[in-house]
């Protein structure tokens, strides 16, 4: 991945404001940002390791550990709560066998909170591996569970 960093900065620029775009590109490439890569990022953008570590740990998206093979981002915001989001969250945790905010022990699926997907009239909603799913009820939850089992 270290040469991914140098190649990316060679193509997209190495000024400090390229840090977030670079971290997003690394997420797409490897799914997470390994702490061991921080020195390479710092060198490429001429920042200190502290600068890079401070940014990575600030933003929720920049995970530092491998994600589950499947990621279910369930919305916890008010509009979805108004449409029964809390109950669906409890059911999902039970059905998928993983606590909110965790990756299942077998690494198969991660259940993550997200505060609003902008689908506030058709909640409860979720992003399942990046794909939006609306009006989640028990049946839809079952379909999601089968899909992430694969």
């Amino acid at each position: 991945m270290e040469d991914f960093v140098t190649e990316w900065t060679a193509r997209h620029g190495a000024t400090r404001d390229r840090l977030l775009p670079l971290l997003h590109a690394m997420l797409e490439e490897a799914g997470y940002i390994d702490d061991a890569l921080v020195p390479a990022i710092a060198r490429a953008l001429n920042l200190s390791r502290a600068d890079v570590h401070g940014v990575i740990t600030f933003y929720h998206d920049f995970r530092r550990t491998a994600p589950g093979r499947h990621v279910v981002k369930l919305c916890r915001a008010e509009s979805c709560q108004a449409r029964g989001g809390a109950a669906i969250e409890a059911a999902a945790a039970k059905r998928l066998g993983v606590a909110m905010g965790e990756v299942r022990a077998d690494g198969q699926v991660a259940l993550e909170p997200v505060y609003c997907l902008g689908l506030c009239a058709i909640g409860p909603n979720a992003l399942v591996d990046g794909r939006p799913v609306g009006r989640i009820d028990a049946a839809v939850l079952e379909r999601i569970a089968l899909e992430v089992a694969a």
Partner: peptide
Amino acid sequence: GTFALTIENKGFESKVSPSQG
């Protein structure tokens, strides 16, 4: 001018962190 310190995490968990904690 060494930039060796940062705040890691955010909110209540914010903590002073030398380099990578």
